[in-house]
Design a protein around this nucleic acid. Structure first.
Lengths: 203, 203
DNA sequence: CAAAGTTACTAAACACTGTTTAGTGCTCAA
DNA sequence: TTGAGCACTAAACAGTGTTTAGTAACTTTG
Protein backbone atom coordinates (compact mmCIF):
# COMPACT_ATOMS: atom_id res chain seq x y z
CA UNK A 1 0.00 0.00 0.00
CA UNK A 2 3.04 2.23 -0.04
CA UNK A 3 2.38 3.45 -3.55
CA UNK A 4 -1.16 4.46 -2.70
CA UNK A 5 0.19 6.33 0.31
CA UNK A 6 2.79 8.12 -1.79
CA UNK A 7 0.13 9.10 -4.31
CA UNK A 8 -2.08 10.46 -1.60
CA UNK A 9 0.85 12.42 -0.21
CA UNK A 10 1.68 13.77 -3.66
CA UNK A 11 -1.95 14.76 -4.15
CA UNK A 12 -1.90 16.67 -0.87
CA UNK A 13 1.42 18.28 -1.81
CA UNK A 14 0.02 19.41 -5.13
CA UNK A 15 -3.08 20.86 -3.47
CA UNK A 16 -0.88 22.76 -1.08
CA UNK A 17 1.37 23.89 -3.93
CA UNK A 18 -1.64 25.29 -5.77
CA UNK A 19 -2.96 26.96 -2.65
CA UNK A 20 0.38 28.51 -1.84
CA UNK A 21 0.61 29.90 -5.37
CA UNK A 22 -2.91 31.29 -5.04
CA UNK A 23 -1.94 32.79 -1.69
CA UNK A 24 1.06 34.59 -3.16
CA UNK A 25 -0.81 35.89 -6.16
CA UNK A 26 -3.64 37.07 -3.94
CA UNK A 27 -1.24 38.97 -1.71
CA UNK A 28 0.60 40.49 -4.68
CA UNK A 29 -2.22 41.27 -7.09
CA UNK A 30 -5.30 41.08 -4.88
CA UNK A 31 -8.49 39.23 -5.57
CA UNK A 32 -8.93 40.56 -9.10
CA UNK A 33 -5.43 39.49 -10.13
CA UNK A 34 -6.06 35.95 -8.98
CA UNK A 35 -7.13 33.67 -11.79
CA UNK A 36 -6.69 30.05 -12.71
CA UNK A 37 -4.21 30.75 -15.49
CA UNK A 38 -1.97 32.84 -13.24
CA UNK A 39 -1.91 30.06 -10.65
CA UNK A 40 -1.12 27.51 -13.35
CA UNK A 41 1.68 29.64 -14.74
CA UNK A 42 3.25 30.16 -11.32
CA UNK A 43 3.38 26.43 -10.56
CA UNK A 44 4.33 25.64 -14.18
CA UNK A 45 1.39 23.39 -14.93
CA UNK A 46 -1.46 23.77 -17.38
CA UNK A 47 -4.69 25.44 -16.21
CA UNK A 48 -6.59 22.17 -16.62
CA UNK A 49 -4.37 20.51 -14.02
CA UNK A 50 -5.75 22.80 -11.33
CA UNK A 51 -9.13 21.18 -11.84
CA UNK A 52 -7.72 17.76 -10.94
CA UNK A 53 -7.04 19.06 -7.43
CA UNK A 54 -9.80 21.62 -6.86
CA UNK A 55 -13.37 21.31 -8.10
CA UNK A 56 -13.52 24.94 -9.16
CA UNK A 57 -12.23 28.39 -8.34
CA UNK A 58 -14.59 28.68 -5.40
CA UNK A 59 -12.92 25.76 -3.66
CA UNK A 60 -9.57 27.55 -3.87
CA UNK A 61 -11.34 30.64 -2.65
CA UNK A 62 -12.68 28.78 0.37
CA UNK A 63 -9.23 27.44 1.15
CA UNK A 64 -7.90 31.00 1.03
CA UNK A 65 -10.70 32.13 3.30
CA UNK A 66 -9.57 29.49 5.76
CA UNK A 67 -6.05 30.92 5.70
CA UNK A 68 -7.50 34.35 6.36
CA UNK A 69 -9.54 33.00 9.27
CA UNK A 70 -6.43 31.34 10.69
CA UNK A 71 -4.42 34.54 10.32
CA UNK A 72 -7.16 36.43 12.13
CA UNK A 73 -7.29 33.88 14.95
CA UNK A 74 -3.51 34.05 15.33
CA UNK A 75 -3.67 37.81 15.44
CA UNK A 76 -6.27 37.71 18.22
CA UNK A 77 -4.58 35.04 20.37
CA UNK A 78 -2.66 37.50 22.61
CA UNK A 79 -5.98 38.76 23.97
CA UNK A 80 -6.87 35.31 25.26
CA UNK A 81 -4.14 35.51 27.89
CA UNK A 82 -5.63 38.50 29.66
CA UNK A 83 -7.24 37.58 32.94
CA UNK A 84 -9.66 40.48 33.51
CA UNK A 85 -12.62 40.03 31.13
CA UNK A 86 -13.11 43.73 30.53
CA UNK A 87 -9.45 44.29 29.66
CA UNK A 88 -9.56 41.13 27.55
CA UNK A 89 -12.59 42.44 25.68
CA UNK A 90 -10.90 45.78 25.00
CA UNK A 91 -7.73 44.13 23.76
CA UNK A 92 -9.74 41.72 21.63
CA UNK A 93 -11.50 44.64 20.00
CA UNK A 94 -8.29 46.56 19.53
CA UNK A 95 -6.62 43.55 17.89
CA UNK A 96 -9.66 42.89 15.72
CA UNK A 97 -9.56 46.40 14.30
CA UNK A 98 -5.77 46.23 14.07
CA UNK A 99 -6.01 43.06 12.01
CA UNK A 100 -8.50 44.64 9.64
CA UNK A 101 -6.37 47.73 9.06
CA UNK A 102 -3.13 45.79 8.67
CA UNK A 103 -4.53 43.08 6.42
CA UNK A 104 -7.37 44.64 4.46
CA UNK A 105 -7.23 41.88 1.84
CA UNK A 106 -7.69 39.13 4.42
CA UNK A 107 -10.47 41.06 6.11
CA UNK A 108 -12.13 41.68 2.78
CA UNK A 109 -11.98 37.98 1.95
CA UNK A 110 -13.54 37.05 5.28
CA UNK A 111 -16.27 39.63 5.68
CA UNK A 112 -16.79 41.73 2.59
CA UNK A 113 -16.52 39.41 -0.38
CA UNK A 114 -19.71 38.59 -2.18
CA UNK A 115 -19.16 34.85 -1.91
CA UNK A 116 -21.54 31.95 -2.24
CA UNK A 117 -22.17 32.15 1.50
CA UNK A 118 -24.70 29.31 1.37
CA UNK A 119 -21.90 26.81 1.02
CA UNK A 120 -19.39 28.42 3.31
CA UNK A 121 -21.13 27.04 6.38
CA UNK A 122 -19.94 23.55 5.56
CA UNK A 123 -16.34 24.68 5.33
CA UNK A 124 -13.70 24.51 8.04
CA UNK A 125 -13.34 28.24 7.57
CA UNK A 126 -16.76 28.86 9.03
CA UNK A 127 -16.02 26.55 11.96
CA UNK A 128 -12.81 28.40 12.68
CA UNK A 129 -14.49 31.78 12.39
CA UNK A 130 -17.28 30.63 14.67
CA UNK A 131 -14.75 29.53 17.30
CA UNK A 132 -13.19 32.99 17.27
CA UNK A 133 -16.62 34.56 17.42
CA UNK A 134 -17.56 32.33 20.35
CA UNK A 135 -14.46 33.40 22.21
CA UNK A 136 -15.62 36.99 21.72
CA UNK A 137 -19.15 36.30 22.92
CA UNK A 138 -17.82 34.34 25.93
CA UNK A 139 -15.66 37.30 26.88
CA UNK A 140 -18.70 39.57 26.74
CA UNK A 141 -20.54 37.00 28.85
CA UNK A 142 -17.69 37.03 31.38
CA UNK A 143 -18.03 40.82 31.58
CA UNK A 144 -21.77 40.48 32.09
CA UNK A 145 -21.22 37.84 34.79
CA UNK A 146 -18.69 40.09 36.50
CA UNK A 147 -21.26 42.93 36.47
CA UNK A 148 -19.18 45.17 34.23
CA UNK A 149 -22.38 46.26 32.51
CA UNK A 150 -25.79 47.19 33.82
CA UNK A 151 -27.32 45.38 30.86
CA UNK A 152 -27.32 41.56 30.90
CA UNK A 153 -28.22 41.09 27.24
CA UNK A 154 -24.96 39.43 26.23
CA UNK A 155 -26.05 38.73 22.66
CA UNK A 156 -27.05 42.31 21.88
CA UNK A 157 -23.97 43.76 23.58
CA UNK A 158 -21.67 41.46 21.63
CA UNK A 159 -23.46 42.16 18.39
CA UNK A 160 -23.43 45.92 18.91
CA UNK A 161 -19.69 45.99 19.59
CA UNK A 162 -19.06 43.76 16.60
CA UNK A 163 -21.15 46.06 14.37
CA UNK A 164 -19.01 49.02 15.36
CA UNK A 165 -15.68 47.27 14.82
CA UNK A 166 -16.82 45.72 11.58
CA UNK A 167 -18.24 48.99 10.30
CA UNK A 168 -15.04 50.78 11.18
CA UNK A 169 -12.84 48.31 9.35
CA UNK A 170 -15.24 48.02 6.40
CA UNK A 171 -15.29 51.73 5.74
CA UNK A 172 -11.51 51.58 5.63
CA UNK A 173 -11.18 48.48 3.51
CA UNK A 174 -13.68 49.57 0.89
CA UNK A 175 -12.39 53.13 0.86
CA UNK A 176 -15.52 54.91 2.00
CA UNK A 177 -13.63 57.36 4.21
CA UNK A 178 -12.50 59.62 1.43
CA UNK A 179 -14.21 62.63 2.98
CA UNK A 180 -11.51 62.53 5.66
CA UNK A 181 -7.92 63.37 4.72
CA UNK A 182 -5.79 60.19 4.57
CA UNK A 183 -3.57 61.19 7.47
CA UNK A 184 -6.63 61.72 9.68
CA UNK A 185 -8.21 58.36 9.05
CA UNK A 186 -6.21 56.15 11.37
CA UNK A 187 -6.44 58.66 14.17
CA UNK A 188 -10.19 58.91 13.72
CA UNK A 189 -10.40 55.12 13.89
CA UNK A 190 -8.42 55.11 17.13
CA UNK A 191 -10.56 57.88 18.62
CA UNK A 192 -13.72 56.08 17.62
CA UNK A 193 -12.49 52.86 19.21
CA UNK A 194 -11.76 54.74 22.42
CA UNK A 195 -15.21 56.27 22.25
CA UNK A 196 -17.03 52.96 21.86
CA UNK A 197 -15.06 51.64 24.84
CA UNK A 198 -16.22 54.63 26.88
CA UNK A 199 -19.77 54.09 25.64
CA UNK A 200 -19.62 50.42 26.54
CA UNK A 201 -18.53 51.27 30.05
CA UNK A 202 -21.87 52.97 30.57
CA UNK A 203 -23.87 50.02 29.26
CA UNK B 1 -30.33 74.74 -34.59
CA UNK B 2 -33.44 72.63 -34.11
CA UNK B 3 -31.84 69.51 -35.55
CA UNK B 4 -28.85 69.75 -33.25
CA UNK B 5 -31.23 70.16 -30.35
CA UNK B 6 -33.23 67.13 -31.40
CA UNK B 7 -30.03 65.09 -31.73
CA UNK B 8 -28.95 66.13 -28.28
CA UNK B 9 -32.35 65.20 -26.92
CA UNK B 10 -32.18 61.83 -28.65
CA UNK B 11 -28.71 61.24 -27.24
CA UNK B 12 -29.98 61.97 -23.74
CA UNK B 13 -32.99 59.74 -24.29
CA UNK B 14 -30.77 56.90 -25.41
CA UNK B 15 -28.53 57.33 -22.37
CA UNK B 16 -31.54 57.21 -20.12
CA UNK B 17 -32.93 54.20 -22.00
CA UNK B 18 -29.67 52.34 -21.44
CA UNK B 19 -29.56 53.33 -17.80
CA UNK B 20 -33.14 52.31 -17.22
CA UNK B 21 -32.45 48.91 -18.77
CA UNK B 22 -29.38 48.55 -16.56
CA UNK B 23 -31.47 49.55 -13.57
CA UNK B 24 -34.07 46.87 -14.28
CA UNK B 25 -31.53 44.15 -14.92
CA UNK B 26 -29.68 45.11 -11.75
CA UNK B 27 -32.86 44.86 -9.69
CA UNK B 28 -33.85 41.57 -11.27
CA UNK B 29 -30.55 39.73 -11.54
CA UNK B 30 -28.26 41.71 -9.26
CA UNK B 31 -24.82 43.01 -9.99
CA UNK B 32 -23.50 39.75 -11.40
CA UNK B 33 -26.35 39.42 -13.87
CA UNK B 34 -25.72 42.89 -15.23
CA UNK B 35 -23.59 42.87 -18.36
CA UNK B 36 -23.32 44.87 -21.54
CA UNK B 37 -24.90 42.21 -23.71
CA UNK B 38 -27.92 41.86 -21.43
CA UNK B 39 -28.46 45.62 -21.53
CA UNK B 40 -28.10 45.62 -25.32
CA UNK B 41 -30.56 42.76 -25.69
CA UNK B 42 -33.13 44.46 -23.47
CA UNK B 43 -33.09 47.69 -25.48
CA UNK B 44 -32.79 45.78 -28.77
CA UNK B 45 -29.52 47.32 -29.90
CA UNK B 46 -26.13 45.78 -30.49
CA UNK B 47 -23.62 45.74 -27.61
CA UNK B 48 -21.33 48.11 -29.49
CA UNK B 49 -24.04 50.78 -29.47
CA UNK B 50 -23.82 51.01 -25.68
CA UNK B 51 -20.28 52.31 -26.10
CA UNK B 52 -21.50 55.25 -28.17
CA UNK B 53 -23.35 56.53 -25.10
CA UNK B 54 -21.23 55.35 -22.19
CA UNK B 55 -17.42 55.21 -22.16
CA UNK B 56 -17.37 51.84 -20.45
CA UNK B 57 -19.22 49.66 -17.99
CA UNK B 58 -17.92 51.68 -15.07
CA UNK B 59 -19.70 54.79 -16.31
CA UNK B 60 -22.99 52.90 -16.27
CA UNK B 61 -22.03 51.64 -12.85
CA UNK B 62 -21.47 55.20 -11.62
CA UNK B 63 -24.83 56.27 -13.00
CA UNK B 64 -26.45 53.40 -11.11
CA UNK B 65 -24.61 54.41 -7.97
CA UNK B 66 -26.11 57.86 -8.40
CA UNK B 67 -29.59 56.35 -8.51
CA UNK B 68 -28.81 54.44 -5.34
CA UNK B 69 -27.59 57.62 -3.66
CA UNK B 70 -30.76 59.42 -4.71
CA UNK B 71 -32.92 56.57 -3.42
CA UNK B 72 -31.06 56.73 -0.11
CA UNK B 73 -31.47 60.50 0.15
CA UNK B 74 -35.20 60.18 -0.58
CA UNK B 75 -35.51 57.51 2.08
CA UNK B 76 -33.85 59.75 4.66
CA UNK B 77 -35.78 62.94 3.84
CA UNK B 78 -38.53 62.43 6.47
CA UNK B 79 -35.92 62.79 9.21
CA UNK B 80 -35.06 66.31 8.04
CA UNK B 81 -38.44 67.58 9.17
CA UNK B 82 -37.89 66.74 12.82
CA UNK B 83 -37.20 69.80 14.93
CA UNK B 84 -35.41 68.33 17.93
CA UNK B 85 -31.85 67.45 16.87
CA UNK B 86 -31.62 64.37 19.08
CA UNK B 87 -34.92 62.95 17.79
CA UNK B 88 -33.82 63.87 14.27
CA UNK B 89 -30.55 62.01 14.75
CA UNK B 90 -32.34 58.91 16.03
CA UNK B 91 -34.81 58.95 13.15
CA UNK B 92 -32.00 59.50 10.67
CA UNK B 93 -30.17 56.46 12.02
CA UNK B 94 -33.31 54.37 12.05
CA UNK B 95 -34.08 55.28 8.45
CA UNK B 96 -30.47 54.67 7.40
CA UNK B 97 -30.57 51.13 8.74
CA UNK B 98 -34.07 50.67 7.37
CA UNK B 99 -32.87 51.65 3.90
CA UNK B 100 -29.99 49.18 4.06
CA UNK B 101 -32.20 46.29 5.12
CA UNK B 102 -34.95 47.07 2.62
CA UNK B 103 -32.65 47.73 -0.33
CA UNK B 104 -29.55 45.59 0.19
CA UNK B 105 -28.59 45.86 -3.48
CA UNK B 106 -28.59 49.65 -3.41
CA UNK B 107 -26.68 49.69 -0.17
CA UNK B 108 -24.19 47.23 -1.54
CA UNK B 109 -23.66 49.36 -4.62
CA UNK B 110 -23.07 52.45 -2.51
CA UNK B 111 -20.90 51.15 0.29
CA UNK B 112 -19.74 47.60 -0.27
CA UNK B 113 -18.84 47.29 -3.91
CA UNK B 114 -15.20 47.06 -4.77
CA UNK B 115 -15.39 49.91 -7.26
CA UNK B 116 -12.71 52.12 -8.73
CA UNK B 117 -13.23 54.53 -5.85
CA UNK B 118 -10.47 56.83 -7.08
CA UNK B 119 -12.74 58.14 -9.82
CA UNK B 120 -15.97 58.19 -7.90
CA UNK B 121 -15.06 61.46 -6.23
CA UNK B 122 -15.53 63.35 -9.49
CA UNK B 123 -19.01 61.91 -9.92
CA UNK B 124 -22.30 63.52 -8.94
CA UNK B 125 -22.92 60.41 -6.89
CA UNK B 126 -20.17 61.35 -4.48
CA UNK B 127 -21.47 64.90 -4.24
CA UNK B 128 -24.95 63.65 -3.44
CA UNK B 129 -23.63 61.15 -0.90
CA UNK B 130 -21.53 63.86 0.71
CA UNK B 131 -24.57 66.13 1.02
CA UNK B 132 -26.45 63.39 2.87
CA UNK B 133 -23.40 62.74 5.03
CA UNK B 134 -23.12 66.45 5.81
CA UNK B 135 -26.72 66.54 6.90
CA UNK B 136 -25.90 63.73 9.30
CA UNK B 137 -22.81 65.45 10.68
CA UNK B 138 -24.73 68.71 11.03
CA UNK B 139 -27.41 66.95 13.04
CA UNK B 140 -24.75 65.55 15.35
CA UNK B 141 -23.31 69.06 15.60
CA UNK B 142 -26.76 70.39 16.51
CA UNK B 143 -26.94 67.79 19.28
CA UNK B 144 -23.52 68.82 20.51
CA UNK B 145 -24.52 72.49 20.42
CA UNK B 146 -27.68 71.72 22.37
CA UNK B 147 -25.55 69.90 24.99
CA UNK B 148 -27.13 66.51 24.34
CA UNK B 149 -23.72 64.93 24.85
CA UNK B 150 -20.97 65.53 27.36
CA UNK B 151 -18.44 65.05 24.57
CA UNK B 152 -18.02 67.86 22.05
CA UNK B 153 -16.02 65.88 19.51
CA UNK B 154 -18.62 66.03 16.74
CA UNK B 155 -16.46 64.29 14.17
CA UNK B 156 -15.71 61.26 16.31
CA UNK B 157 -19.29 60.98 17.55
CA UNK B 158 -20.64 61.08 14.01
CA UNK B 159 -18.06 58.61 12.78
CA UNK B 160 -18.70 56.21 15.65
CA UNK B 161 -22.44 56.18 15.06
CA UNK B 162 -21.90 55.74 11.35
CA UNK B 163 -19.55 52.81 11.97
CA UNK B 164 -22.20 51.06 13.99
CA UNK B 165 -24.99 51.59 11.49
CA UNK B 166 -22.79 50.69 8.56
CA UNK B 167 -21.44 47.59 10.30
CA UNK B 168 -24.94 46.49 11.16
CA UNK B 169 -26.22 46.82 7.61
CA UNK B 170 -23.04 45.33 6.10
CA UNK B 171 -23.25 42.17 8.16
CA UNK B 172 -26.78 41.78 6.87
CA UNK B 173 -26.11 42.60 3.26
CA UNK B 174 -23.09 40.33 2.93
CA UNK B 175 -24.74 37.55 4.92
CA UNK B 176 -22.32 37.34 7.81
CA UNK B 177 -25.05 36.81 10.40
CA UNK B 178 -25.59 33.16 9.68
CA UNK B 179 -24.77 32.20 13.25
CA UNK B 180 -28.08 33.76 14.23
CA UNK B 181 -31.33 32.09 13.09
CA UNK B 182 -32.93 34.08 10.25
CA UNK B 183 -36.02 35.02 12.24
CA UNK B 184 -33.81 36.47 15.02
CA UNK B 185 -31.72 38.71 12.80
CA UNK B 186 -34.02 41.66 12.31
CA UNK B 187 -34.93 41.70 15.99
CA UNK B 188 -31.26 41.65 16.93
CA UNK B 189 -30.67 44.57 14.57
CA UNK B 190 -33.50 46.52 16.19
CA UNK B 191 -32.22 45.73 19.69
CA UNK B 192 -28.72 46.75 18.72
CA UNK B 193 -29.95 50.02 17.29
CA UNK B 194 -31.83 50.71 20.52
CA UNK B 195 -28.67 49.89 22.44
CA UNK B 196 -26.45 52.26 20.48
CA UNK B 197 -29.04 55.01 21.05
CA UNK B 198 -28.89 54.30 24.80
CA UNK B 199 -25.10 54.29 24.64
CA UNK B 200 -25.07 57.58 22.74
CA UNK B 201 -27.25 59.17 25.40
CA UNK B 202 -24.42 58.65 27.85
CA UNK B 203 -21.79 60.14 25.61
C1' DC C 1 8.85 -9.28 -18.66
C1' DA C 2 5.34 -7.84 -21.93
C1' DA C 3 0.49 -6.47 -22.25
C1' DA C 4 -3.23 -4.14 -20.33
C1' DG C 5 -5.12 -0.82 -17.45
C1' DT C 6 -4.79 3.35 -14.85
C1' DT C 7 -3.22 7.73 -13.84
C1' DA C 8 -1.27 12.58 -14.46
C1' DC C 9 -1.24 15.81 -17.45
C1' DT C 10 -2.14 19.00 -21.34
C1' DA C 11 -3.62 21.32 -25.94
C1' DA C 12 -7.41 22.93 -27.59
C1' DA C 13 -11.80 24.07 -27.37
C1' DC C 14 -16.20 26.16 -25.35
C1' DA C 15 -18.93 29.62 -23.30
C1' DC C 16 -19.03 33.84 -21.34
C1' DT C 17 -17.19 38.39 -20.18
C1' DG C 18 -15.75 43.76 -21.70
C1' DT C 19 -14.27 46.29 -25.58
C1' DT C 20 -12.63 47.70 -30.41
C1' DT C 21 -12.52 47.78 -35.37
C1' DA C 22 -14.00 48.17 -39.83
C1' DG C 23 -17.34 48.79 -42.15
C1' DT C 24 -22.65 49.93 -43.96
C1' DG C 25 -26.40 52.49 -44.96
C1' DC C 26 -28.95 56.54 -43.72
C1' DT C 27 -29.42 61.62 -42.73
C1' DC C 28 -28.55 66.12 -43.74
C1' DA C 29 -26.15 70.41 -45.26
C1' DA C 30 -24.47 72.57 -49.37
C1' DT D 1 -27.95 65.71 -56.01
C1' DT D 2 -23.88 64.82 -53.81
C1' DG D 3 -20.47 64.42 -50.33
C1' DA D 4 -19.73 64.46 -45.34
C1' DG D 5 -21.01 63.00 -41.20
C1' DC D 6 -23.79 60.17 -38.35
C1' DA D 7 -26.01 55.95 -35.95
C1' DC D 8 -25.45 51.59 -35.91
C1' DT D 9 -23.69 46.80 -36.19
C1' DA D 10 -21.19 42.21 -37.37
C1' DA D 11 -17.28 40.40 -36.28
C1' DA D 12 -13.36 40.18 -34.01
C1' DC D 13 -10.02 40.47 -29.92
C1' DA D 14 -8.50 39.60 -25.40
C1' DG D 15 -9.38 37.86 -21.01
C1' DT D 16 -12.08 35.03 -17.86
C1' DG D 17 -13.69 29.89 -15.82
C1' DT D 18 -14.23 25.26 -17.26
C1' DT D 19 -14.51 20.83 -20.16
C1' DT D 20 -13.06 17.48 -23.51
C1' DA D 21 -10.33 14.40 -25.89
C1' DG D 22 -6.16 12.55 -26.20
C1' DT D 23 -1.14 11.34 -24.90
C1' DA D 24 2.47 9.55 -22.44
C1' DA D 25 4.13 7.68 -18.35
C1' DC D 26 3.35 4.71 -14.52
C1' DT D 27 1.39 0.53 -12.29
C1' DT D 28 -0.71 -3.81 -12.25
C1' DT D 29 -1.49 -8.18 -14.14
C1' DG D 30 -0.99 -12.53 -16.65
Amino acid sequence: MSIAERKEREKAEMRSLILSAAHHIFKEKGYDGLNIRSIAERIEYSPATIYLYYKDKNEIFYALQYEAAAAKRDHLIPAAGIEDPWQRLIEFGRLYVDFGLKHPDWYDLLFLTRAPMEHVENQECWTLGMATHSFFVETVQACVDARYFKSTDTQTIAYTLWCHAHGLVSLFVRERMRMYPPEQREELARKSFAMIVKMAEGL
